[in-house]
Design a protein around this nucleic acid. Structure first.
Length: 500
RNA sequence: GGUGACGUGACCGAGUGGCUAGGUAGAGGUCUGCAAAACCUCCUACAGCGGUUCGAAUCCGCUCGUCACCUCCA
């Protein structure tokens, strides 16, 4: 596979040439949503960025298996000793089955992701459907001596693990410092031997709704376990790329690595760990706890306090891709409005491509070499951007440079004579492929069909009033081709779908 | 307190030693019945102060400021 894609690996803290373990196959795992609440804009960056990564890998010819989980169990809320996970807490308040809540929000999540142009993952495993695998993994970790059971709960023994492995290698932390920074006032620590230890299995309290039998107690799996268990099941003990938000690096991903190492002893789970940066509002991270989040509904339909107007999903996608994924990105009206214009400009370019035809009878220039090279350089710049750690900002900048060329040709088609047909074809093809297939930006129809129709009927009425019956017939025929019949009623002109 | 980032023109955002992206906004022009779009031109910035270097936005030091993680979070 000929390409020059390099990716920044959090594990090694540098960009590395991407080489899959088993070409042409590539395994990608992304930490997915917790479905106890509506997702917000901040939750969109990972899915969008990794969607582009997967699309680009496929463009390069790889066969990608993209796994993105749904967390419908396990992430604790509030004090650990409450033993109540987020799903069941929300469920009781709403008097619903926990799974009903999970299903409801999972569906909404899917709709939003689809609107944002994210391809569905190849496998979307749910934590609740993989309790067996998680229990199996705990048993392995126990057998290897890196976990212990207390009162029906099982904890991962971080200090013990750290004797043989390096807990903190991903997030660059050392256990001593972590210990120093631990707040011992945290509740629910009494069962743990060390404050650094984390739960693999928690015994459920009386009130806890979501519970499964296990060798240790009726309970539920720990927060970090599902990703280790499910990525292993579907991608293997070691796979190519694991992604997630920067805020998951510690402790979540660190614990994942520890669990994987402790269960089968020889793998960092994934070879490349990628972390996307956060979305900020007024310089502060958008988060549920801070309450400064913008929900997709508010974003797409209007109503977010931080924004004066709604923005379409594709505008948002473009906005996210205009920054490199490792940079923080700040949301504001101004930024989104600029993004909207840029996005539309790119789309108008898409519509121009087919019109770039050398007018008949125009002689092609003899020497197109220089112009061809220029065009090819612009295309190469776009790919160079993507190859450089998925720098979509650079790729988009390159596309705009290419577009300026196209627009120049479009303004005077005769100038197409200066480039060869082959070079033009390559360039337009690249533009289309990059925009649509790789960046996943598609044209959002903005014109309202009914409004256009009523406009047409206005002309129809005007034509009738002036007895321009040839025009009247023309309009009626044209609408009929669209499956629409004009109805002249006493009350006025109306329309209906043809029943033919 | 520990760890890690970052500070680029009106706004957003690339760039990590010389070639000084891109989008939006603004100014002028071409085109045009008017307009829009498009194209051309202009506005040329790197928090501050030192240092290294022939040369620094880019490397080093200090100062100031902002943020993230260390607790559920993408």
């Amino acid at each position: 596979m000929q390409h020059a894609l390099s990716l920044y690996n959090t594990l090694t803290r540098r960009k590395e040439a991407f080489e899959p373990l088993h070409p042409p196959f590539v395994g990608v795992y992304l930490c997915g949503p917790t479905v106890y609440n509506d997702a917000h804009l901040g939750n969109a960056r990972g899915p969008v960025v990794f969607d582009v990564l997967v699309r680009y890998l496929r463009h390069l010819g790889y066969t990608v298996r993209y796994v993105r989980n749904i967390t419908d169990v396990g992430h604790l809320e509030g004090d650990a000793d409450e033993g109540e996970d987020k799903i069941s807490k929300r469920a009781r308040a709403a008097q619903l089955e926990p799974m009903q809540v999970a299903e409801y929000y999972a569906n909404r999540y899917h709709n939003h992701m689809e609107a944002l142009g994210c391809l569905p993952p190849d496998i979307e495993p749910r934590a609740s459907g993989h309790i067996t695998e998680q229990i199996g993994m705990i048993e392995e970790i126990l057998a290897n001596g890196f976990a212990y059971e207390v009162n029906g709960s099982v904890y991962f023994d971080v200090p013990r693990y750290n004797e043989q492995h390096n807990y903190g290698k991903l997030s660059n932390r050392v256990t001593e410092e972590l210990l120093a920074g631990t707040r011992d006032n945290l509740a629910g620590q009494d069962e743990k031997r060390s404050p650094l230890d984390f739960a693999l299995w928690k015994k459920a309290s009386e009130a806890h709704l979501m519970r499964w039998p296990s060798p240790w107690s009726e309970g539920f799996p720990g927060w970090h376990l599902e990703c280790s268990a499910m990525s292993r099941k579907y991608l293997g003990q070691t796979f190519d790329i694991h992604g997630g938000g920067l805020d998951l690096m510690f402790p979540h991903h660190e614990c994942e690595i520890a669990q994987s190492q402790a269960s089968h002893s020889h793998s960092d789970e994934a070879r490349v760990w990628m972390h996307n940066n956060m979305i900020t509002v007024n310089g502060q991270k958008m988060s549920k706890s801070l309450g400064n989040f913008i929900t997709f509904n508010d974003l797409f339909k209007g109503g977010a306090s931080a924004l004066s107007q709604p923005y379409s999903p594709m505008t948002v996608r473009f906005f996210l891709l205009q920054a490199q994924y490792r940079s923080p990105i700040d949301v504001s009206d101004e930024a989104l409005q600029a993004a909207r214009k840029g996005y539309r400009k790119l789309m108008n370019g898409l519509r121009l491509l087919d019109k770039l035809q050398l007018p008949e009878g125009t002689e092609r220039a003899v020497d197109t070499e220089k112009a061809d090279a220029e065009l090819r350089k612009l295309v190469a710049d776009c790919f160079a951007g993507l190859n450089d750690d998925l720098n979509t900002a650079r790729a988009i900048a390159g596309l705009f440079n290419l577009l300026r060329k196209f627009n120049g040709f479009g303004a005077n088609l005769a100038t197409l004579a200066n480039v060869s047909a082959a070079a033009l074809q390559e360039a337009t093809q690249a533009y289309r492929t990059l925009v649509t297939d790789v960046l996943g930006l598609v044209d959002e129809p903005r014109a309202n069909a009914e409004d256009l129709l009523s406009l047409t009927l206005t002309f129809y009425q005007e034509a009738k009033a002036t007895k321009a019956y040839d025009k009247v017939d023309q309009i009626r025929a044209a609408l009929k081709e669209q499956g629409i019949v004009v109805k002249d009623t006493k009350a006025g002109v109306d329309w209906a779908y043809s029943e033919e």
